[in-house]
Nucleic acid binder design. Structure first.
Lengths: 222, 222
DNA sequence: TGAATAGTGTCTTTCAGACAATATCCA
DNA sequence: TGGATATTGTCTGAAAGACACTATTCA
């Protein structure tokens, strides 16, 4: 067996982790799921949920992220999207650390945060209200900020957060979700015009949402 | 020393590499720099230049990418931007492979491709003309396609490829470069209007490029 | 009937593409 | 003077924001 065919033995490889930036709308505001670290390093500080990449268990990065979601949060995450990779000698005091960060949107009502292994608390934090003075672990503040920026940028461009609404929804619900993600109001007429022009949603024939007032047409994603 | 503080010893870590997708304009067309592999695996196939992440040498991923550029291409790459991380058990026959891919723009006239270690040939390939039937190594076709898509998307949005033009340039040269990257012509009036509205360039007072015909104002990036 | 939400219509501004017109150099 | 490029201007249509208007339900 040549050196070329067994590169693992030649150079030490970095400590490689998966980090999950999970965003949701809680109490009408965009929020991120953070875990309070129970052990060193950075004990007591807040980190996004994550875990070690296990090449003996994980076929690829995607399935590693799914496994971590299942282990840490006990919930599967639809539409995990890679955010970025960060790696340096200094970001983790235990040694050269490499993290592949993923982002996901999760309906808050489908999930109850419960503390688990190496986690004292698990809770939602409003990204505009609760993060300014929060003590983050590692470089996780930057991870959260990047994920928030990307998601808001996408919603601005009408990449709709379907992961945050039920399969069937009214246009009012969809618009309200977008407004909560962005933290600002949207114009109803413009919003609906763009939905129509780009054929982003289709009506569910016959189904109406009958609430307190005038019934609303029910839609699905196109 | 606890297990928690020495995680490297607990789980095997993936074989981690840096890959560089280097794009340029050659003969008026967007081109990518590819290296023909001299050894197994995938001997004779074409790959983007890359190298192993060396945590004993590299402070972080950025400097690792710079070191690889220096070693493989003998040229520093301005504005390396991370493209994505890919990792799976199957993409490299030598074992679980993780690659962090970076992209960069490099003026072709400032660089002469020369073969080097583990590389038979190093050459530019037109991304629209020469790649269709090319035998790529690993998953590098997808890396190239993603980098091309991202760069073209950026130029469409007037994120200008300043790395491909000299420090001082005329608007005609800048527009021609954008057109070559995109593979289509642009409207002169719209192009200049956007440059002006967004203050992307500033004139170099007094300096004019005097060529065969009417002299042109020289600009710098803002 | 009024409150509250659903759905539509219109006006205006902005912005980008198309295209034309003028300006200035060299051969 | 004509050819080629530089620079500016005008027209038009698409897209989006602002805002108003109508529709439907229940209390």
């Amino acid at each position: 067996m040549t050196v070329e065919s067994m590169p693992h033995t030649v150079h030490p490889m970095p400590f490689t982790r998966i980090e999950l930036v999970v965003l949701s709308v809680v109490d009408g505001r965009l929020a991120v799921l953070l875990a309070r670290r129970a052990g060193a390093p950075h004990k007591g500080r807040w980190a996004v949920p994550g875990g070690v990449l296990r090449i003996d268990l994980d076929r690829d990065l995607e399935s590693a992220a799914q496994r971590v979601a299942q282990e840490r949060l006990n919930v599967p995450l639809p539409h995990l999207v890679q955010l970025l990779a960060v790696g340096s000698a200094k970001r983790d005091p235990r040694g050269w650390g490499l993290s592949i960060a993923y982002r996901a949107l999760l309906p808050a009502d489908a999930f109850h945060p419960v503390a688990g292994k190496r986690v004292e608390q698990l809770d939602w934090f409003g990204v505009d209200d609760d993060l300014a003075d929060l003590a983050f672990a590692f470089d996780h503040r930057q991870l959260v900020e990047q994920a928030v920026a990307v998601v808001r940028h996408e919603v601005e461009r009408m990449a709709l957060p379907f992961d945050l609404v039920p399969e069937k929804f009214t246009l009012g619900e969809l618009q309200a979700t977008c407004e909560e993600v962005l933290g600002r109001t949207l114009d109803k007429s413009s919003f609906r015009r763009k939905l129509d022009e780009r054929s982003l949603v289709v009506p569910v024939e016959g189904e109406m949402r009958t609430g307190a007032f005038r019934p609303a047409q029910v839609f699905r994603r196109a």
